[in-house]
Amino acid sequence: MESFISTGLINSEWSSVFAVGIGGAIGFVLESSGFSSSRKVAGTFYGYDFTSLRVFLMAGITSLIGLLYMDFFGWIDFFSFNIPDTYIWPTLLGSIFMGVGFVASGFCPGTSILSAAIGKLDGWIFIGSTMVGIFLFTILFPLLEPIYNAGNLGAITITDVLGLSSYVYAFIVTLIVIALFYLATLIRRRKTTVKY
């Protein structure tokens, strides 16, 4: 993955050390929050456990609001980020594949690593089959290339499309996320407890 910004704070030698450290913190927090359990993650789609939804959205708004503050304080330049190009058709197609794969397995690549780390065999199997999937994609790429490059809208952001400032957008997203938290609580109350 290319970096969003080049901060020049650390050189390339230290970058790997820092990567392991950041990864360790992420792994610890996610495992402690319950992401290593596929049944807990799948609970989001059946209404018996919204932990993963809450953690993810909370992290999302924290980072969004935090970055806007960091930009405000002049620590980073929020508006100089490299925006990845949006390829509308392959994004939709790939996301539908991932949505089905998510419910079929209860994993996304990140949670499968957490599961594998605490000894769950299904996590290891998922990692293996994901790599096979990527391998198949690479092999079939000449055939898939027209789809892969279809519908390039360029480096477009949601705020360009909606015509809102980033601050207004962050405020609206935060309200939506809080509404989702509340909705999740309402749904959760009506479901019986599932033990796992």
């Binding site: 790939g94 994993f107 096979v132």
Partner: peptide, 15 residues
């Protein structure tokens, strides 16, 4: 799990 992994592998490249 295997089917899900394959779908993820392919889907994540498209997306």
């Amino acid at each position: 799990v295997i089917i899900g992994g394959l779908l993820f592998g392919i889907g994540s490249q498209f997306a």
